[in-house]
């Protein structure tokens, strides 16, 4: 469905993700930390088997938006939320929904690699063990590590403590840990911000690989990264979703002046 949006004197053609292609639909989301409002009436559809990047200056609410997709914000005391986040036809904020179950379906990778102080193997199968799975762990661990492009580096030292790995390896281990339970949707919160360029490149190509199996939403402060890997991009500013669309279009022909200013580096 093509929309035509009038901005000033210009008219821009814009195509939101149709509901049937969306893995998650955010509808009129308002979020408050106590009295402070962090998200203002955000609505956006995140497409299936694509990478969507959320960009914007720091403090714009991009991490908050990401964390409301798997109810991680529930862990912050004093958070209040209005609106809907519909995942596979169910509002995950419905009172009947168990947040623990939500997080099982929607995986997450964090800014800093955060492996548990356990062995590499135990890290990967942690989620499976939580669900009481006792057999076939070896196969699942191998598949997850292969998909995370880490298998060749660690296959001989699965029993080693994960903290000995390099930063980039640790982050790929965290990705392997997140995908071991086969979550259809994977959220990534600035996953390469703590890594060097070489490790970053490996993770980026890995994310493009992962598109085949998973839908991905990635928060990044790195414009080039969004341009390199994202199919669609969401631009946030001060808790408001300013603009959303195919990455190419947003980077070459932004509809909003603030987007243009941010992308061209005038603030942020």
């Amino acid at each position: 469905m093509v929309q035509e949006v009038a901005i000033g004197h210009e008219t821009v053609r814009w195509e939101p993700v149709p509901a049937e292609d969306a893995v998650v639909q955010v509808q009129n989301l308002n979020l408050f930390y106590g009295k402070h409002q962090a998200l203002y009436n955000v609505s956006v559809n995140f497409p299936r088997n694509k990478i969507t990047a959320i960009i914007g200056p720091s403090g714009c609410g991009k991490s908050t938006l990401l964390r409301s997709l798997n109810r991680m914000n529930d862990l912050v005391p004093g958070v209040r939320l209005e609106g809907k986040v519909i995942y596979e036809g169910v509002d995950i904020y419905d009172t009947q929904v168990d947040p623990v179950e939500v997080r099982r379906h929607i995986g997450m990778v964090f800014q800093k690699p955060n492996p548990f102080p356990k062995t590499i193997f135990e890290n990967v199968v942690f989620g499976l063990r939580l669900q009481g799975q006792k057999t076939g762990l070896d196969e699942v661990a191998q598949r997850a590590l292969e998909r995370a492009a880490l298998w060749d580096e660690v296959k001989d030292k699965l029993g080693e403590i994960a903290l000995r790995l390099s930063g980039g390896q640790q982050q790929r281990l965290c990705i392997a840990r997140a995908i071991a339970t086969e979550p259809p949707l994977l959220l990534l919160d600035e996953p390469t911000s703590a890594l060097d360029p070489i490790a970053t490149e490996r993770i980026e190509s890995l994310l493009i690989e992962l598109k085949q199996h998973y839908s991905l939403v990635i928060v990044t402060h790195n414009m080039q990264q969004a341009a390199r890997i994202a199919d669609r991009t969401v631009f946030m500013h001060l808790g408001v979703l300013i603009e959303e669309g195919p990455t190419n279009q947003m980077f070459t022909n932004p509809r909003d002046k603030r987007t243009e200013a941010y992308i061209t580096g005038r603030f942020g």
Partner: peptide
């Protein structure tokens, strides 16, 4: 897949236990 999100303990004794 959708069913899992709704807390329906009778369908998953293991989750009920947890």
């Amino acid at each position: 897949m959708q069913r899992g999100l709704i807390q329906d303990s009778s369908q998953n004794p293991q989750k009920q236990q947890r």
